[in-house]
Design a protein around this nucleic acid. Structure first.
Lengths: 347, 347
DNA sequence: ATGAAAGCGCTAACAC
DNA sequence: GTGTTAGCGCTTTCAT
């Protein structure tokens, strides 16, 4: 019964034309308050819900958004999706998810297929948000879209991003504040723009706030635990060895921690370690990892919100910066404690 | 231009009535091959795509499915969603994701809202798939749905599940095959039906295949790394200590591994450890964890496929069992090696 | 095998 | 303020 109450049923029941009902449903202000109330009560009583498809067909506004992603780490996609969905829910939209493969030669075709759904807009998460074919196809189709943490062609669409530089700077400052001076850094792949930002932030803080920068304390990894372990091994065999390691993602931090364990060192007592991302692994480790929380869900939420705003007035904000958090857990000690525990170190 | 080619455009171009075009699009066999080809070539040339909304409105088949989840661990949701989406893609469907809160008093209302989208069907992932209010509302709305790994009211809908019992049995057999006899087990929360199955499978294998079952080698945790570490501590302080630990999920296995490290033991040399789930952490650990892969994505894919089949002929299979994999990594040694390495152990 | 007519349930002009 | 008249692009009868 509730399944197909229509505008017309409501109209009949309320004794008005079905157009008036339509007005009420859409919050048109030009309806007498009295009429509106009568209609609304009938709507409630009959548990009426507009037919989404009819509405979309007639108005070409579907209240449907797509989230397009590529090559997902399921953990990441999950967060993005939860964020995007939350924003949709707030605004009465719904979210369709579509996976694409940006490497595929058919990518443009695939995007066109999605566009043919005639959704109101598209949210692009990395790395799809930097795929030229995707961007071009979307632009041609004139469908509004926003991007999460894009690196390129920033003027193509509204986007949301986080200040990796500042986050790394602050994390480094935190380490320095805890008394560390000899801080090593494990860089990520240089192709990863955000990884570079993190490295720059680290360097800036070390220079400005008085850390000991040494060439042999800078290593590079591939964002994997394995590469982090290898980098850690190398760092821990330098003399003097650093008292802290800042890895530019959590997986590498995990690897560095393993390297420490293998040498019989016990973090954080013998070595402080921090990461970046607040990946699930950060809390699965022992000791739990101090890290930077990338507010992935919040970014997706914000991006989606921007998209929805953009739908209403296309000349809104073009970009948004989200905050981050330094999540302080157990993998860092104040250096003072360390001295007390009496184990190597010059002072 | 490509954005609004309609049936009528195609019809004009191909010199047939627009109804014939409709037939071609929908694969109606009663069209002369020659006509069909002509139409198809025009469709391809004009890059025509049916308007989803119009189709849905006219036929009440939207080719849209919803994935409903509650209280998601983003990693899990991500996998479920990827699986469901893959199945949709294969069948020309699209997937809408909706998060709900089964604890909320408004849950029925929320489900009704989703139902009002008039989707073709719904995929329910745990724990939403066991929420009575959700099931009841869906049933009343007469919308087809399938469930992933449900525990209750199994006759309410088609569902897909995995044999946790058998998986645990086989993992235990694997450990026994590697020469272990003294195998400890860390149980999960007893409220978790699948965790219980795993325990039963372990017990059965130990009894049947000749393991040494001891009361003090059975511990219980809460599926967290922390609880796994605590359980590990207790297990490793029994005398004699077990030579292997089977944790009923990966996080607890991780915890047990930490406990071993803390006691100066080096897995796998001094202790073999296996988990269950193949969570991301399994490969981030060192040594990498031997574990059971829950084919989450595959289950979601299978469930979605069942749903789509069910849409066509509602009297299909009512349940499906998916396989699992024992993922052999580095956290287990054959006990022979262990003896050689010469470190404690009786016999 | 193909076509004509009548909606699906709604919104978008316009009138009143 | 409210009602009327057309469609949106398709699927469904039912003819031919």
């Amino acid at each position: 019964m509730t399944s197909s109450t229509t505008l017309i049923d409501i109209a009949r029941e309320a004794g008005v034309s079905f157009k008036t009902v339509s007005r009420v449903i859409n919050g048109d202000p030009k309806v007498k308050a009295e009429t509106r109330e009568r209609v609304e009560s009938v709507v409630a009583r009959l548990n009426y819900r507009p037919n989404v498809w009819a509405r979309a067909l007639a108005s070409s506004r579907s209240h449907l958004l797509a989230l397009i992603y590529d090559n997902p780490s399921p953990g990441y996609v999950g967060q993005v999706q939860v964020g995007a969905m939350t924003a949709c829910q707030r605004a009465g939209f719904h979210l369709i998810v579509e996976e694409v493969n940006c490497q595929s030669p058919d990518i443009a075709q695939r995007i066109r297929e999605i566009v043919s759904l005639r959704l109101d807009g598209v949210v692009l998460s990395p790395p799809a948000c930097d795929c030229p074919a995707v961007l071009e196809t979307l632009r041609k189709a004139k469908i509004p879209f926003v991007r999460i943490a894009p690196h390129e062609q920033l003027d193509l669409s509204p986007y949301i991003h986080m200040d990796d530089y500042k986050a790394a700077y602050e994390m480094t400052a935190y380490l320095l504040g805890a008394g560390h001076r000899d801080i090593a850094f494990i860089r990520g792949p240089s192709s990863h723009a955000q990884a570079e930002e993190r490295y720059r932030g680290f360097l800036a803080a070390m220079e400005k706030l008085g850390g000991n920068l040494r060439r042999q304390w800078i290593e590079t990894g591939g964002f994997t635990a394995r590469s982090g372990m290898a980098a850690g091994e190398r760092l821990l065999s330098t003399k003097p060895a650093p008292t802290a390691i800042f890895a530019s993602n959590d997986d590498m931090a995990m690897g560095a921690m393993s390297a420490a364990f293998r040498r019989g060192m016990v973090p954080p007592r013998d070595l402080s370690i921090v990461g970046f991302d607040d990946a699930p692994i950060a809390t699965s480790l022992w000791p739990q990892l101090t890290t930077v929380r990338q507010p992935v869900a919040k970014m997706a939420d914000g991006a989606t919100e921007m998209l929805i705003e953009h739908l209403n007035k296309p000349d809104g904000a073009k970009s948004r910066l989200v905050g981050f958090d330094i999540i302080k857990r157990d993998s860092v000690v104040r250096l003072a404690n360390k001295r007390l525990n009496g184990k190597k170190r010059k002072s």
